[in-house]
Design a protein around this nucleic acid. Sequence first.
DNA 1: GTTCTAGAAC
DNA 2: GTTCTAGAAC
Length: 216
Amino acid sequence: ELQHRRSAAKATGDEPDPRFKLSAPWAQALRNVALHPEKAQQDVLYKDDLVVLIRDAFPKAKHHALVVARDPMLRSIADLRKEHLPLLAHMKEVALRWVQEERSKDPMTVAFKLGFHSVPSMAQLHMHAVSQDFNSPALKNKKHWNSFTTRFFLPLHNVESELASRGHITIMAHAEQEQLEGQELRCHGCSKSMTLMPELKKHIATCDAVKRLPGI
DNA sequence: GTTCTAGAAC
DNA sequence: GTTCTAGAAC
């Protein structure tokens, strides 16, 4: 059936509809959680007037949660201004509390990092809290890997300091975004370069440098 | 963001 | 023959 539809589109020479992504329901899932947490399909771990804390639906590490801002005006980091620094401090506090809970359940876990994707795929400002093991079946491809281990991942502290100094976040150029997403696979601990995902996943499971990574 | 799968890479 | 990546999805 799918194959049939693909062939049909090709046969008629139909061009892709650029509005499809913008209106796609999946891109609004986090916004829906933020605006209507009581209707959320997944468990809400914590909620107040400013944020909602949930586990990532497709965790890319043993421990992976999202702190989602509830302000409808905050669709991404591009909407952040100096006035939002207190909100970021609150998001940090909520994330750190969750990290401590996870750590108490799993004392041997490696470091955690807090931060944002430069160009997120989903609407609504959300901060990742993710353990640096990246041991998860949902971590499947180069884009996944590079979105957490290259400059595509903006640590919370960097976002805070750029807001404080410039008053807004400079969004990276599309060409740079694509370059980072497509770049070679490299261990985030020892910088060893690898060709294939299975090779990388096997390596990071045993790399000593990964175990000693700095972080929370 | 994920799923699916054709065809490349092994 | 099997594993793996990468692009379409309306």
